[in-house]
């Protein structure tokens, strides 16, 4: 009940300062819009090239920066000396191959012939890639076990 009596006069006298309220609203929204677009821009810039191909890494030789490489595992290239955790394998984009050195846990689908591999790490001058983390990119086709024959 008391709310009503308070609201009435304020809405009446609001006609004058309403323009300042409006400009304040516009300023707030502009700031918000700029912040949002800046956020979008920076987010995209870092994510724009989520990974490079093997060929791009070998030709560009990205030095002293963390990059991701995408490629297929070269069949039978995976070697690991028994008792040690360091593994070596090759990734290929079809034409170029790159030697990977990795010390860590291998994900479930790493050896699956349908998987692509995304390796996060650093490229070294001598032509090897030191992997920090491995991600497996799965095919976006899903099929039951029976129909899979190709």
């Amino acid at each position: 009940m008391s709310d009503e009596s308070h609201i009435e006069p304020t809405t009446m006298q609001n006609s004058e300062p309403q323009s300042t309220a409006k400009t304040r609203l516009i300023i707030a929204l502009t700031v918000l819009g700029i912040a949002l677009s800046y956020f979008l821009f920076t987010a995209f810039q870092s994510a724009q090239v989520y990974y490079y191909t093997v060929g791009e890494v070998v030709t560009n030789k990205p030095h002293a920066e963390l990059v991701r490489v995408n490629g297929n595992l070269v069949a039978d290239s995976f070697t690991r000396i028994s008792g040690e955790t360091e593994a070596r394998f090759e990734l290929t984009d079809g034409s170029t191959k790159l030697l990977m050195i990795y010390d860590g846990i291998i994900p479930d689908l790493f050896f699956n012939p349908h998987s692509e591999i995304v390796a996060e790490g650093q490229y070294y001058e001598e032509g090897t890639f030191h992997v920090d983390d491995i991600l497996v990119k799965c095919p976006s086709k899903y099929t039951g076990e029976v129909t899979e024959s190709t």
Binding site: I105, I106, P107, D108, F110, F111, E145
Partner: peptide
């Protein structure tokens, strides 16, 4: 903790 290589379809 599931084993890495020889996974069964029910592993996950």
């Amino acid at each position: 903790e599931i084993a890495t290589t020889n996974q069964s379809p029910e592993a996950n």
